[in-house]
Design a protein around this nucleic acid. Structure first.
Length: 923
RNA sequence: GCGCAUGUGGCGUAAUUGGUAGCCGCACCAGACUUAGGAUCUGGCGGGGAAACCCGUGGGGGUUCGAGUCCCUCCAUGCGCACCA
């Protein structure tokens, strides 16, 4: 009886769904375990074999944990707001909700075929109003919160207002200092915006004209948008933002408490970019203004040659002298107009202009020329630097170009030619530096900060590269920001009126005035009397939230997905705590994974959570690349030559659909039928075959190398797909997909089935297994258990193969062996495991069984075949009992016949005996 | 430029964590059964050599009785950051 995977898999998938086999309970005596996958954006292209890789791994782990008595939360959902559905809507007029639903349906079908043990009753969709209601609610909590540095956490904004009221604090409003109770309502609101965690602020943002929206820093790669690859410009805009910078230090420090890969942690540290130094103020000659600079090298303060301001610096135009005005204006205008990409491309070209003004050196009183240069970034530090050309490469380049002096203040311990380059190392001895002379760099930094603080010229300071995250998008398909403007003051929509539904619009495009699509709705005003959206009243915010809003807290919603009163009940939050195992791609290193940590911390500060981190352990699965097949066409003909012959002709490679190729051999008939222009194709074979070339590249439609899980499941079954995906290699490694190898796993499944069958029917024996059979089973249990716990899924697949090979050789059909085998296999190949379990006579799911305990007693050996090395090289083997002493082993090895050839009768210098391992004889 | 990974047969990989390098598969070769084989089974399969043996984990060096594994150095590939003062 051949194994019929099609019917069997269908049967068990239905059984699991009907019986809610994998339902997780919020009230359970069992210990909890939370296994989460990064939920997908449901794109129109559907899943290819790369997508389920992480889901299969997490599913194996979830099933394994269930077998070990855990109450496992293993949910799935959809990150269903996003740009592609909206771009499609713009082109077709189709509402994004419709395309999104269709895509989700397709995803669900594809996922269901693979046999995942997801808790589908907890599914979430970020675009569902019952979900985004709570995304909006969280936004309001963050809007009503500020970060109190005194207690190192966020608290309600009322506490800050109280403080302002009681202390009647001074605030800088429109350049003037005023007392809190002298401020009008608008001014107070403006002041509070400087503190709120979700705030409306003016900042330089990444504006993408092609997408018609702003982008967060992590959505911009190499000066172009990550989605679509459109150019991005810098633009000063008033935008909703998230004060993630307030959490910079905690985001950095808490990395040490979580079990994430070094590369992700390193990427986050990099992105946060903490640097310690000092701020220093410079007075300007003939001006009341002061320039504040940030430096990590206060020790080089006596080496200052000039100051440089970013072109966007607020004083850049102000301090420019009359005679320089034209030149400076032109320079600033040019610098501002350059796109992000141009700016990055020109990193090594120096450009700048002198303002004509001089600052005063805070220690020496000497005049210091003030320049403007675009090598100084407006967004970092204060947008102004003290230039020390002798000890900073960038200043050195600038000084060389404009022939400015480069005073040296450090003598390096090694030879260094200052006429060729700067000495940037934090190493050497200070010279020409007044009170710092003779100190090492390290000591001088400390001493100088002390001195700066003592003289009140500035203070020690820590700066971060991390920017606040822009939170508004000028797009339709996202969560509406629940804010309306009453006389220009931002007010949150009352929480009990949420969700604020996305309004209907006629087109998904900006208005003629350039307002976001939401402004097209005539019914987009807040009526305070009616407490609802209306055609008149106070205007509602028209930008929507970015893609990362919904994904920054979805792991919490799964805990209590249908709660109408809170985002998740306190009980559910208390029981599930945080994610124990989180699996997803490393492309979210600095985006999602920072935001979700940030929101977790903020919600904790505000008293809603007990946890500091969303996920204790994180694994990044590798990318599965495509393996493209290529055929070679002789130039200007319709004649194709086999791979081995291509160098004899002038050919152009053509991508061919990988579905026409088996073991690199092309099905020429299928190829001819593929496209009209290949109908008349001729082939030059080698050895009677037409062989294709191949290339490893990204899996994509245009390369015709996409393999879908559906096709594999159809042909080989879900269990086979699951095992083969794991068999490909270590989970975290990127590797190419090659359907060829699947025959091995497919054969394994057939062989497994045969173990339980003889004479065409199910047949297992109740006899006591032999020693060898017990050994095979227990060695496999041990190995598979170790492997799963190390997330080394590829190696357990190979242990299963070894196990089945050995049991086949032993002709084993004993129940005592085959039943436990079905259990340990069930996380990997759940369908066939269920079927075999049922055939063994059980009427409950194998997922309710217990993972068998391995017994070392079965693994004990009496003898061991010792490899004997001579001078470190293995020369022969000798079988010895394991319980004999080291001395006895040495004696018997030296007496062995094969040994004489190497010792030549003389005594060896040394003999190393590692019992149970190896013997090494040194001659 | 800085940081993080990775480098083992024709290919995907494995190696008890310092102890027999190449497990398990794919591909390939030979054989059996068969009208047939993209089915199944048996055997072979790192390179050189009749063999004895020699060489071999990106290159070079080191530590060690013993190194794919540890240390130093260089090279290559991939990813991330990048004028961050």
């Amino acid at each position: 009886m051949e194994y019929n995977f099609r019917d069997t898999e269908k049967y068990w998938q239905k059984y699991w769904a009907d019986n809610q086999t994998f339902r997780a309970e919020n009230n359970s005596e069992k210990p909890k375990y939370y296994v989460l996958d990064m939920f997908p954006y449901p794109s129109g292209a559907g899943l290819h074999v790369g997508h389920p890789l992480g889901y299969i791994a997490s599913d194996i782990y979830a099933r394994y944990k269930r077998l070990n008595g855990f109450n496992v939360l293993h949910p799935m959902g959809y990150d269903s707001f996003g740009l592609p559905a909206e771009q499609y809507a713009i082109q077709t007029g189709q509402h994004p909700a419709i395309t999104t639903d269709a895509n989700i349906k397709r995803y669900r079908e594809q996922l269901d075929k693979i046999g995942f043990s997801f808790n589908w009753d907890r599914e979430v969709r970020t675009s569902d109003p019952s979900y985004y209601k709570w995304t909006q609610w969280i936004f309001i909590q963050l809007f009503n919160a500020w970060y109190n540095p005194a207690i190192g956490k966020a608290e309600h904004i009322d506490k800050l207002i109280q403080k302002f009221n009681s202390e009647n604090t001074e605030h800088l409003v429109n350049g003037k200092s005023k007392k809190w109770n002298e401020l009008n309502e608008n001014e107070q609101s403006d002041v509070l915006m400087n503190y709120r965690i979700a705030y409306l602020g003016e900042a330089y943002v990444n504006w993408c004209p092609a997408l018609g929206t702003v982008l967060a820093n992590d959505e911009v790669k190499d000066g172009v948008s990550e989605r679509g690859g459109y150019p991005v410009e810098r633009k000063l805009m008033k935008q909703w933002s998230m004060r993630i910078t307030a959490y910079a230090d905690r985001l950095l420090n808490d990395l040490e408490t979580i079990d994430w890969s070094d590369s992700i942690k390193e990427a986050q540290r990099n992105w946060i970019g903490k640097s310690e130094g000092a701020s220093l103020e410079f007075c300007i000659q003939n001006s009341e203004d002061k320039i504040e600079v940030f430096t990590t090298r206060p020790d080089t303060v006596f080496g200052i040659s000039f100051l440089t301001l970013a072109p966007e610096h607020e004083l850049a135009e102000k301090i420019t002298t009359q005679d320089k005005k034209a030149e400076v204006d032109a320079y600033i205008a040019k610098a501002k107009n350059r796109s992000e990409r141009e700016r990055q491309a020109e990193v090594n070209t120096v450009s700048g202009v002198f303002t004509g003004s001089y600052a005063i050196h805070p220690f020496t009183g000497a005049p210091v020329p003030v320049w403007i240069g675009d090598y100084v970034l407006a967004g970092y530090g204060t947008g102004a630097v003290m230039a020390v050309p002798a000890h900073d490469e960038r200043d050195y380049r600038f000084a060389s170009f404009y022939q400015l002096p480069k005073p040296q203040v450090i003598t390096p311990d090694v030879e260094h030619d200052f006429s060729k380059s700067s000495w940037d190392e934090k190493q050497g001895t200070l010279i020409n530096s007044s009170f710092l002379d003779g100190l090492t760099v390290k000591d001088a930094i400390k001493k100088c900060i002390d001195e700066i603080e003592k003289r009140k010229l500035g203070k020690g300071k820590i700066n971060y590269r991390l920017r606040d995250a822009v939170f508004g998008r000028q797009r339709y398909w996202g969560e509406p920001i629940p804010v309306y403007y009453k006389n220009g003051i931002a007010n949150a929509i009352p929480e009990n009126q949420l969700p604020l539904h996305l309004p209907a619009v006629d087109k998904f495009l900006p208005t003629e005035e350039g307002e976001p699509p939401l402004a097209r709705s005539e019914k987009w005003f807040w009526n305070e009397t009616k407490q609802s959206v209306d055609t008149s009243g106070y205007p509602i915010e028209t930008t929507t939230m970015p893609g990362w809003a919904g994904s920054s807290w979805y792991y919490l919603r799964y805990m209590d997905a249908h709660n109408h009163n809170v985002f998740a009940s306190a009980d559910a939050l208390k029981y599930w705590k945080n994610v124990d195992l989180y699996i997803g791609g490393s492309e979210h290193a600095t985006g999602h994974l920072l935001y979700v940590r940030f929101w977790t911390k903020a919600l904790k500060d505000l008293g809603y959570l007990q946890i500091d981190e969303p996920a204790q352990k994180l694994i990044n699965q590798g990318m599965i690349q495509g393996r493209s097949s290529l055929v070679y066409r002789i130039k200007n003909t319709n004649r194709f030559v086999s791979y081995g012959l291509k160098d004899q002709y002038e050919t152009t490679p053509v991508h061919v659909d990988v579905n026409f190729v088996v073991n690199d051999e092309l099905d020429t008939e299928a190829f001819k039928a593929w496209r009209d222009d290949f109908k008349t194709a001729e082939f030059q074979l080698e050895g009677g075959k037409f062989i294709c070339g191949n290339e490893i590249e990204k899996m994509s439609k245009s390369k015709h190398n996409v393999v879908t899980p559906d096709d594999i499941v159809e042909k080989y079954g879900a269990d086979c797909l699951r095992m083969y995906e794991m068999f490909l290699g270590p989970l975290e490694q990127s590797k190419p997909w090659n359907t060829n190898g699947i025959a091995g796993v497919s054969g394994f499944i057939r062989k497994l089935w045969k173990l339980y069958h003889s004479n065409e029917s199910f047949n297992i024996s109740e006899d006591e297994p032999s020693k060898a059979e017990w050994k095979t089973l227990h060695k496999t249990i041990k190995k598979v258990q170790d492997d799963i716990e190390k997330f080394s899924f590829n190696t357990s697949v190979s242990s299963f193969m070894i196990c089945v090979n050995e049991l086949t050789d032993l002709k084993c059909n004993k129940r005592a062996i085959l039943e436990p085998l079905a259990i340990i296999l069930s996380p990997y190949a759940p369908h066939i495991a269920e079927e075999l379990w049922k055939l063994c006579g059980h009427n409950t799911s194998v997922s309710k069984a217990q993972f068998p305990q391995y017994n070392d007693a079965y693994l004990v050996e009496e003898d061991f075949e010792y490899p004997v090395s001579v001078n470190g090289k293995t020369r022969f083997k000798i079988n010895l009992p394991l319980q004999i002493s080291k001395e006895e082993i040495e004696k018997r090895v030296l007496a062995a016949e094969e040994m004489q050839k190497w010792t030549n009768g003389s005594n060896p210098k040394k003999v190393i005996v590692v019992p149970g391992r190896i013997v090494n004889v040194v001659i």
